[in-house]
Simulated scan of single mutants.
Amino acid sequence: MPVSTWAIAEPRKLTFDEPVTALSVRIVNGTVNVVGSDEPTARLEVSAIEGPPLIVTQHDGVLTVTYEDLAWQNMLKWLDRKGWPRHAVISLTVPADSAVEVGVVGAGAFVSGVRGRTDVRGVAGDTTLVGLAGPVGAETVSGNMEAQAVTGALRFHSISGDLTVVEGAGAFVKAETVSGNMTLDLNPAGKPTDVRLSTIAGELAIRLPHPADAKVEANTASGTVSNGFEDLRVSGQWGAKKITGTLGSGTGTLRATTVSGSIALLRRPPAEDDPRDAEPTGKVL
Rank of each mutant, 00 (worst) to 15 (best):
A221R: 15
I243M: 00
T183C: 03
L254R: 12
L184G: 05
G223C: 04
I243V: 05
P209G: 05
T258V: 00
L204T: 02
G252M: 09
I206D: 07
S198T: 10
A212L: 08
V216T: 11
D213H: 08
T183N: 15
D213A: 07
T246N: 10
V178S: 12
V234M: 15
V173N: 04
R255V: 04
E217W: 05
A175Q: 07
G239W: 00
R233N: 10
V259I: 10
G223I: 04
F229Q: 06
V216W: 14
K215R: 15
S260I: 08
K241H: 00
T183M: 05
A256V: 07
T220K: 06
R207N: 00
T253A: 10
W238H: 11
D194V: 08
E176N: 13
G223Y: 11
T251Y: 01
G248P: 05
D185R: 08
A221K: 14
V195G: 14
T177K: 12
N219I: 10
G202Q: 04
R196E: 10
I263M: 03
S235M: 10
G252T: 14
T244N: 07
D185Y: 10
G202P: 00
M182W: 06
G236L: 09
D185S: 06
R207Q: 11
V259H: 08
T251I: 02
V259G: 06
Q237V: 13
G202M: 00
G245I: 01
E203V: 03
W238V: 12
V195W: 14
G252N: 12
A212N: 12
G248C: 07
I206F: 12
V234K: 00
G248K: 03
A218F: 14
S260K: 13
T220W: 06
K191A: 15
G236D: 02
T251G: 06
V216M: 09
K241L: 02
S222W: 01
H210C: 04
N227H: 15
L184T: 05
T177E: 08
R255G: 09
D194H: 11
L184M: 14
M182F: 08
A175K: 04
L204F: 03
L208P: 01
T253H: 08
G180A: 10
A205L: 11
M182I: 00
D185C: 07
E203M: 05
S198N: 09
L247S: 06
A212M: 08
K174V: 15
V195T: 13
F229M: 03
T193P: 06
L204H: 01
L247E: 05
S260Y: 01
G239I: 00
K241M: 00
V259A: 15
G261S: 14
H210M: 08
S179D: 04
S222E: 03
A212Q: 13
R255W: 04
I263K: 04
S249E: 15
L186V: 14
G261D: 03
Q237P: 01
S235F: 14
K241G: 00
D194Y: 06
T220F: 01
S226Y: 01
E230G: 13
T193G: 15
V195F: 05
K191M: 11
N227S: 02
E230F: 05
G245P: 14
A201Q: 14
E230Q: 12
T183Y: 04
